[in-house]
Amino acid sequence: MKDVPGGLFNLDSLLQENSPQTAEILLAYAGLLANKRITDKNASLCLRILGTNNKKAADILFGNSNPETFFAAVKPAGPVIESVFNLLSSFYPGELYGKTLLACIGFLKTSYSSNLNITRIYMPTTENILHTAKYLVACRDKTADCIVEFLKNLYGNEPRPESLTSFLPEIFSVYFDNTKKIDSIFPASLIEGADNGISSIKGTDAQA
């Protein structure tokens, strides 16, 4: 399979259908990508597959690799960063497969720590940040630590998103206070489908 827009177009057409046959084709796409190094050229196609939230396809893609560093070879370009934020905004906490979530957060954490001018390439919106931080409601320690580190890295970038200075202290204050529930600071529309039974219990994950 060539890393060309045509491959992405064909996959988009495929995702409009829902049948055992199309599921098998999706797994085949994942298998072909699994034999390639994930780079700038095929990252978008990889994200489209992960965005289906098909665990079998994701497991084929990740193989034995560490999800947190899965996108390590991908440059933090605006379109890829935007695609990652869009993927995160498409699911409630507890819905997105844990490995996929960690891969997305790991990419953002690295992107916003490796280049202090990254916000000049892509400035996250308030919605981007909230849709990322909302996963603190239902994720295990490793992923939660990555989210917190991403937010800290983002806060250290210049220029800094103005919205970050207003609600970041509140997020940290509630998250590190075991007497409070982290879901209390997010709009219900962001987390209403979440498995809130673990929202105040660190060290567990609904998507493992």
Results as ranks from 00 to 15, higher is better:
T179L: 10
E158V: 14
R160F: 09
F150T: 01
I182V: 05
A144P: 03
N153V: 00
D145W: 10
N157P: 02
D177Y: 01
P161N: 04
T179C: 08
E149P: 04
N157A: 09
S173H: 12
P161Y: 05
S163R: 06
N157E: 07
P159G: 01
V148K: 05
Y175T: 04
I171R: 04
C146V: 06
Y155G: 02
P161E: 07
F172E: 13
Y175R: 03
I171M: 09
I171F: 10
E158D: 12
I182L: 03
E170V: 15
S173E: 15
K152S: 11
L154K: 03
T179Y: 13
P161D: 05
P169N: 02
P169T: 12
T179D: 15
V148A: 05
D177M: 01
E162T: 14
L164R: 12
V148G: 03
S166P: 03
S173V: 10
N178F: 11
V174D: 09
K180P: 05
I147E: 07
D145Q: 14
P161T: 05
K180Y: 00
D145C: 13
G156I: 07
E162S: 15
P161S: 05
Y155W: 10
V148E: 04
A144N: 00
V148L: 11
L151R: 04
L154W: 01
V148C: 06
E170T: 14
A144T: 00
Y155S: 06
A144S: 12
N178S: 12
A144W: 01
L168S: 04
Y175N: 02
K181Y: 14
S163M: 08
F167C: 09
D145G: 13
E162C: 12
K152D: 10
L151N: 08
Y175P: 02
P161G: 06
S173I: 11
V148N: 08
P159L: 00
F172Y: 11
I147S: 04
K152L: 15
L154D: 03
C146H: 05
F167M: 08
K180A: 04
L168D: 08
A144Q: 03
K180W: 02
F150P: 05
N153I: 01
S173D: 13
K180R: 05
I147R: 07
G156T: 11
F176T: 09
E170P: 11
L164W: 02
E149H: 06
D177W: 07
L154Q: 08
L164K: 02
K181H: 14
F167R: 10
T179M: 10
I147G: 01
G156W: 11
V148Y: 06
C146F: 02
V148D: 06
K180S: 01
P159I: 00
L151D: 06
D177E: 02
I171Y: 09
R160A: 11
V174F: 13
E162Y: 15
G156N: 15
V174K: 09
K152P: 03
F150E: 02
R160M: 12
S166V: 14
S163P: 06
Y155E: 07
L154T: 01
N157Y: 04
N153F: 00
N157K: 04
D145K: 15
I171P: 06
C146S: 10
G156M: 14
T179P: 09
L154F: 02
Y155C: 07
P161A: 04
K181I: 10
K152A: 09
P159F: 00
L154V: 00
